[in-house]
Simulated assay, not measured.
Amino acid sequence: MDEEPERYRVEFASGTAASVAKRRSFRDHERNDIESDLPGWPSGQAFAVRGFFGQLGQHVQTVVTGLLMLPLHIIADALGSPASPERRGKLEEPENEVDDFPVMWAGVGETARTLPWQLDPSRRSWRMVTEMEVAESDGLVRVLSYEDTARGSRFVSWGGGEKVPGSEAVLWSLPRKDVVGAEIKSFSVAESDFKISFRDGSWARLTTSSYGAQGIVALLSSSTSSQVGQVGALRVPPANSP
């Protein structure tokens, strides 16, 4: 009996630089906003890059949060469970990671625009979980969702970890041959962001755990290696990057 394909929780990434922290944009190839053109998508907060005082506030918040968390890190280290703050890697694309933060880059009718709105945590119920799987049996990449049994709120939840019966649904599927690249994005917390590039030149930036990003990129890389000739370690050069 074939093994079930491994699934990883995924969602659209969000900025980590102070100018775009916790924000995301959706762009066409001319960097125009396309949110209002995405069919069936609920309205969301308009994207804007923070000004000087907004960025200053983000820096202050980061410092205060770090100071409040410091005793917890010390206790964890003393108990033998290191929990030092996870840091970002090297800035690679200032235009897409500081000056803007597109998580969808696609022209009219291109593949990235077909990704489901449920991948945006600001638009979906906080109990909804979205996952990605790459199946060997039928050669499809899928995005699925289900409702979690967690209790609490969007900001603090406890319990959970189980699926509400009958809540699972397939939101999106695509043949693996239409994925031409996948790469880890260094400028993310613990390198948990990854970029997936499609045959038509569109792409999306998603996030998961560090382990999940490595797993998804490795799976997608193995399926595209014959197309690109040679695959780098956990990195496939994306097509038509802006």
Score class of each variant (00 low, 15 high):
11 E>R: 13
225 S>W: 12
87 R>C: 10
179 V>D: 02
16 T>C: 14
20 V>K: 05
226 S>F: 09
82 P>W: 04
215 G>H: 04
212 G>N: 04
107 G>I: 03
163 K>M: 11
125 S>N: 04
7 R>D: 03
150 A>T: 05
224 T>I: 12
109 G>H: 01
70 L>E: 15
81 S>K: 07
239 A>Y: 15
36 S>W: 13
208 T>N: 03
78 A>K: 04
116 P>T: 06
126 W>H: 03
231 V>E: 12
146 Y>A: 01
195 K>S: 13
194 F>G: 02
106 A>D: 04
6 E>M: 14
14 S>N: 15
2 D>L: 14
136 E>Q: 07
151 R>I: 00
156 V>F: 10
78 A>N: 05
77 D>C: 00
229 G>F: 02
233 A>W: 15
62 T>C: 10
237 P>W: 09
24 R>T: 13
143 V>F: 05
11 E>A: 13
7 R>H: 11
140 L>R: 05
32 N>L: 09
34 I>Q: 06
3 E>G: 11
211 Y>V: 11
178 D>E: 14
149 T>I: 04
228 V>S: 06
179 V>I: 07
21 A>N: 13
220 L>A: 01
155 F>P: 03
169 A>E: 09
63 V>W: 15
48 A>W: 12
148 D>C: 01
120 D>L: 11
190 A>Q: 10
125 S>G: 02
104 M>V: 12
118 Q>H: 09
133 E>T: 11
146 Y>V: 02
184 I>H: 00
113 R>E: 04
50 R>I: 13
21 A>M: 13
161 G>T: 02
153 S>I: 03
134 V>H: 03
103 V>M: 09
182 A>I: 02
17 A>S: 12
227 Q>K: 12
208 T>L: 03
130 T>C: 03
152 G>Q: 01
102 P>C: 08
176 R>Q: 10
70 L>H: 12
177 K>Y: 08
115 L>V: 06
8 Y>P: 01
9 R>N: 07
21 A>Y: 15
238 P>I: 08
59 H>G: 05
228 V>P: 05
219 L>F: 03
202 S>L: 04
212 G>F: 06
206 L>R: 05
174 L>R: 05
183 E>N: 12
83 A>F: 07
71 P>S: 12
100 D>P: 11
10 V>D: 07
49 V>W: 11
27 R>W: 14
216 I>L: 05
105 W>I: 13
5 P>K: 07
44 G>K: 10
90 K>I: 06
188 S>Q: 09
59 H>V: 09
137 S>I: 00
123 R>I: 12
100 D>N: 10
168 E>C: 02
66 G>K: 10
150 A>W: 05
139 G>E: 00
73 H>G: 01
32 N>W: 08
56 L>N: 04
5 P>I: 06
225 S>Y: 12
133 E>I: 08
75 I>N: 08
86 E>M: 09
131 E>V: 02
134 V>K: 02
149 T>W: 00
172 W>T: 01
222 S>F: 09
192 S>M: 04
172 W>N: 00
234 L>M: 05
144 L>C: 08
82 P>R: 08
73 H>E: 06
179 V>P: 04
66 G>T: 10
190 A>K: 13
61 Q>I: 13
3 E>Y: 14
158 W>E: 09
193 D>A: 12
51 G>D: 15
194 F>Y: 03
